[in-house]
Design a protein around this nucleic acid. Structure first.
Lengths: 351, 351
DNA sequence: TTGTAAGCGTTATCAG
DNA sequence: CTGATAACGCTTACAA
């Protein structure tokens, strides 16, 4: 295919090993030869062969990305491009390549990961999801293969590098935010119940409700597997409740958007009749009408820090296990309003 | 790191080369030894080392993905996850890995590609964009490196494998669709003017307008670099025109969504006052209110076929250059209506 | 500071 | 049908 280290060596009148050293910027090499070799490289258009390098050095300088299985349409969630952008950024600057692994089913995905790992294609992995009892996670832990998780591990928190938001606090905070606005009947619409993020946020929500001495209604809690369709059905059911909620916490912008639509269809106005608040702060929250109040979880940072953490681990294997918490920020737009009893049929107290 | 071909050979009492043959499913090998070797592999948990394999066979079995530079927020466009899903599907089934290349600037991106190519990291590339005078494209053409483009090449159409929609016809068709609905003042809001897709669609639009003997107003044609913000400004300008359009063709769903919002804000109702039709048929078109009429360009297929085309090229280098056209389909939702003069101040004729 | 030579884990070319 | 053996392009002791 191309020009090899030997060609360069010949051209520069040095040994191949010297060229290798120049490429690696080895300190004990004279400036003179460095110059000479670099010129030769330039002239011949030399580029190191990564396969050979990997083979010899037993490191591929590439990071593997593991997506959740793409059976549902979760993939269309802008979350992924954005984390990837963050990971790319740091990877690029540290000269790591990025390899993706996807699969339609969990088994396919697992297979892909095993091949990547055992085949030596990647030095480490970043898991772009966190769910309970995950085969991939178990496999990696068992093999003691370097990886970092975006999200909170369900078990072994202290043994798994991860970068996450404080989802518990975030959910608690926005619930309190709604309570402060006078809402007492607040519903929670979460994603798949086996995603850790759902669990955490639900916990924060519950805590806030309880702490405010409000009653926790089971009917107000919905967790749906499918990102969109589920949310929409859930919304209708919630609205059909005899004592329907006046505010909705939705754990994903896309889902919230879907809910917004059905609400409109059945004549429920946001934010007048129902307040809506969601997570992720994707581009669409700005575009939506009304623009959605949403929790900015800093997806880009999530990715960037995950990448950084992994690379550090790879380059200094004795680096301690880390837990990195990315701050969140509530971005207020126009989907939340104060509770006004007057607009509701089933009036309670409250002015 | 792990168990190698030699370990397996020893365990099965054969030569390493025999193991290699078994892995490759070489025909001239007895069933007996195949069995024996396979058992040994199973027992030892053998997985071939890809780096070594690549080095020896001079093929990496991986496909590189080249994204557009991520300076604007184009990356948040659901187009990308979806093409990637398509590419993944075929890649997975043919046992190819996927390597991503991104960069913030064009230069960074170009660098990444060169490293991938010259470093032997990938056997071929898929470009997920098509723009005029692209450095990456030129480089690949010059080196005669296998690649396929998603979209239509600006030049050398016959020499570049590509998969595309017939964007000219698509645009023409939807323009005619609007004309049939009675619209005579139809505006075109496209993306960056140096993306080939913008050029093609604009051409189709123009053709339809001219063929219907309507006048082509320059003020009705807008091309904006930035995906969202641009579109929104454009919409306001269009609406401020003395003779404002009654229908808008927007070349991207996200953009259309943004436009939809500003239209609402300035009191212009879609579809009553203005009809809106867009491209891509992303999930958000269903969620939007009103749901958007959009052209389904079958993004998944675009990716799948691009992957297939590349792999075929890689495995049979004498495969002729291909041009694959994926059919589109207009998906009617609720953002288009018949033109009704009554709702407009500046009444023309037309019933 | 630089050169020599032995791998890294495969595949491929010959023999047999 | 199977076994030696030489690459593949690079890194890295070990020498010099």
């Amino acid at each position: 295919m191309g020009v090899t280290i030997k060609d360069v060596a010949r051209a520069a009148n040095v040994a191949p090993s010297t060229v290798s050293r120049v490429v690696a910027n080895h300190p004990r090499i004279s400036e003179k030869t460095k110059q000479r070799v670099r010129e030769a490289m330039e002239q011949l258009g030399y580029h190191p062969n990564y396969q050979a390098r990997s083979l010899a050095s037993k490191s591929s300088q590439t990071i593997g990305l593991v997506m959740p299985d793409s059976t549902d349409r979760i993939f269309q969630n802008p979350f992924f491009p954005e984390v990837i952008r963050g990971i790319s950024k740091i990877a690029h600057s540290r000269e790591y390549a990025i390899c993706m692994s996807t699969g339609e089913t969990e088994a396919e995905l697992y297979d892909g990961v095993v091949r990547m790992v055992q085949g030596g294609r990647v030095d480490g992995l970043i898991l772009l999801y966190s769910k309970i009892n995950d085969r991939v996670t178990n496999y990696l832990k068992e093999r003691d293969f370097p990886f970092v998780m975006v999200g909170k591990p369900h078990t072994d928190m202290d043994a798994i590098n991860h970068v996450d938001n404080d989802n518990y606090s975030a959910a608690k905070e926005i619930t309190e935010y709604l309570i402060k606005k006078g809402h007492e009947r607040i519903a929670f619409v979460g994603g798949s119940p086996d995603m850790v993020v759902t669990i955490d946020r639900l916990e924060g929500y519950k805590q806030a409700i309880t702490q405010a001495s409000l009653t926790l209604h089971d009917e107000y809690i919905v967790r749906e597997k499918v990102l969109r369709e589920g949310g929409e059905e859930a919304a209708i059911e919630l609205m059909n409740l005899p004592n329907r909620p006046t505010a909705l916490i939705v754990t994903d912008d896309m889902m919230a958007l879907g809910i917004l639509r059905v609400l409109n269809e059945i004549g429920v106005n946001v934010p007048k009749d129902v307040s809506l608040i969601s997570f992720n702060n994707a581009l669409i929250t700005e575009i939506s009408q009304p623009p959605l109040t949403s929790v900015d979880i800093q997806i880009f940072q999530l990715g960037y820090q995950a990448g950084k953490c992994l690379i550090e681990k790879l380059e200094q294997p004795d680096e301690p296990t880390k837990r990195i918490i990315i701050p969140f920020k509530l971005v207020e737009r126009n989907s939340c309003d104060n509770y006004r009893a007057s607009t509701q049929k089933d009036v309670k107290k409250k002015k």
